[in-house]
Design a protein around this nucleic acid. Structure first.
Length: 263
DNA sequence: AAATACTACAACCGCAAGCGG
DNA sequence: GCCGCTTGCGGTTGTAGTATT
């Protein structure tokens, strides 16, 4: 786990967004040497970053196999997994090939959290409605917590807008653990048979990629730097990702392992 | 057209756990 | 067992782009 650094240097670490040049240096170094110890990567790659920053950049942005683009097809999976695992983003990401914990976390906070909050809001109002209906004759609530005027400032018209018809509520999809697993997607992306259990599928994917990575690395050993990422000198920050995507031949945001092998 | 608010995403920070000296 | 270091994780903040006023 620990590694010996070539030498201890007092370096003022750079912070903030990564430049295409830094990305290139990091990607080239990791692809040719493996990361090993991230602190030494930062030094050996000639980056004025700390190891932590390098690791994060590689994992979240430069690592091959990352899937970019819309989460919409995986939204239900994330919702279900979050329901099961809570804020265990790394655990969740293990079940969503090509997605990083950071990405999922961000997506949760910017998209899904609102949905869940809204749905909880609806449920609270439904419970309150139920309470009001069942206890309509009592003059004081049995519990102060259930006093609707304490809980919300919403007007009655707001309540009507928030609460969908009961028939609609009952028709909301109830997702079971197995429901969100699209094994065909695994099959398509990684050549898995659809009867593989989920955990087996994930392990297969990781180990296979690692193996192919080593294989690929070995085949290019004689020509170091040939698999370096060319990013040019374009100032556009998006250029980096575009080039990497092109390099790994992403198709519609999906990453195919075959593309990776013969890169 | 400028100012402001909002959104999405990248990156940082702090903490805990594991490991070797 | 202690200490120093690295890694990994989750929460939070910062930044850039977009929408709205």
């Amino acid at each position: 786990m620990r590694c010996k650094l070539p030498e201890k240097r007092k370096v003022k670490h750079k912070k903030g967004l990564w430049s295409p040049d830094e990305d290139q240096k990091l990607a080239c170094y990791v692809m040719n040497h493996d990361h090993g110890c991230w602190s030494s990567v930062a030094i050996n790659a000639g980056l004025q970053r700390n190891g932590k920053s390098c690791r994060l950049r590689w994992i979240n942005y430069l690592r091959p196999g990352l899937k970019r683009g819309s989460f919409s097809s995986q939204e239900e999976a994330i919702l279900s997994l979050h329901g099961l695992l809570g804020n265990k983003w790394s655990r969740i990401s293990q079940h969503l090939p090509g997605r990083t914990d950071n990405e999922i976390k961000n997506y949760w906070h910017s998209h899904l959290k609102k949905k869940v909050d809204n749905s909880n809001h609806v449920q609270v109002h439904l419970k309150l409605d139920k309470y009001a209906a069942s206890d309509i004759t009592s003059k004081e609530p049995s519990s102060p917590c259930l006093n609707t005027s304490n809980l919300t400032n919403s007007s009655s018209s707001d309540m009507v807008q928030l609460v969908p018809p009961a028939s609609q509520i009952s028709n909301l999809p109830k997702l079971l653990f197995a429901d969100w697993i699209n094994l065909d997607e695994f099959d398509q992306d990684f050549g898995l048979s659809s009867d593989d259990p989920l955990c087996h599928g994930s392990n297969y994917q990781l180990s296979t990629m690692e193996h192919e990575w080593q294989h690929n690395k070995g085949s290019t050993e004689g020509s170091k730097n040939q698999n370096c990422l060319y990013m040019g000198s374009d100032e556009n920050a998006f250029h980096t990702q575009m080039t990497i995507d092109q390099l790994f031949q992403f198709n519609d945001g999906d990453f195919g392992i075959d593309n990776f092998i013969y890169m």
